[in-house]
């Protein structure tokens, strides 16, 4: 192409592929504006933006699943409130105020939500870790197609906390209506009869 022995590019192999972005920055600074540094993620931009989109879609789906679980929490709590109408009346008669009654049910729902989220989070993290160690690609006989024998897994603490935090917050929101309902209950009806 008339370039003779000129070099058009240099490939750099690094130990930790996840540090590519940081190394790119250093290299770019060292080389100056006349050179163009691209990492493997830059070169596969389309692939990675597809994966990113997939992650967002997964997040939405998972949020919907959590939402369903929260309707469960709300349903359970509404049942408890109905079941405990008399006890709520008793507590009111000995001086519990509305916010006190509300706290009881918010706390119960939050406890269910937090325990569930935590168990789910721990199981999920464990499963993801196991997936990273288990040579699933090889076992499925797919290493001809892919260049690796296992799925690379990276557990992001940020994602982990975000998921658990979202679950707990949604379950907190789920408790509000039943708890509010309980606090507004007329205590007298329940106390009149056995």
């Amino acid at each position: 192409m008339g370039l003779g022995s000129a070099i058009s590019g240099v490939g750099v192999k690094i130990d930790n592929p996840l540090k590519a972005a940081a190394i790119k920055k250093d290299l770019q600074k060292a080389l100056g504006y006349r050179y163009f540094v691209r990492t493997w993620t830059d070169m596969n931009r389309n692939l990675f933006s597809a994966i990113k989109l997939e992650k967002a879609a997964m997040f939405i789906i998972l949020t919907l699943i959590i939402l369903v679980a929260c309707f469960n929490i709300a349903g359970t709590l509404i049942m408890t409130v109905i079941e405990k109408t008399k006890d709520i009346g008793i507590l009111k008669s000995i001086g519990a105020n509305r916010s006190g009654i509300m706290k009881i049910f918010v706390l119960q729902g939050l406890l269910i939500g937090a325990i569930g989220s935590l168990i789910g989070g721990i199981c999920g993290a464990w499963l993801a870790g196991a997936l990273g160690r288990y040579p699933i690609v090889e076992k499925l006989g797919l290493q001809e197609i892919y260049y690796f024998d296992r799925l690379p897994v990276k557990i992001e603490l940020m994602d982990f906390t975000l998921v658990i935090g979202t679950a707990v917050i949604i379950s907190l929101l789920a408790t509000l209506y039943p708890a509010w309902k309980a606090s507004r209950l007329d205590p007298v009806e329940a106390l009149r009869y056995e």
């Binding site: 008399k86 006890d87 009346g89 008793i90 507590l91 009111k92 008669s93 000995i94 001086g95 519990a96 105020n97 509305r98 916010s99 006190g100 106390l191 009869y193 056995e194």
Partner: peptide, 23 residues
């Protein structure tokens, strides 16, 4: 207010019901 009234029930009044109403 509701909380003041609840406080009055708590401090000032003791209820005893026909059906005991213990938890």
């Amino acid at each position: 207010t509701d909380s003041k009234r609840a406080q009055a029930r708590n401090r000032l009044i003791g209820f005893v019901f026909q059906f005991y109403h213990l938890l």
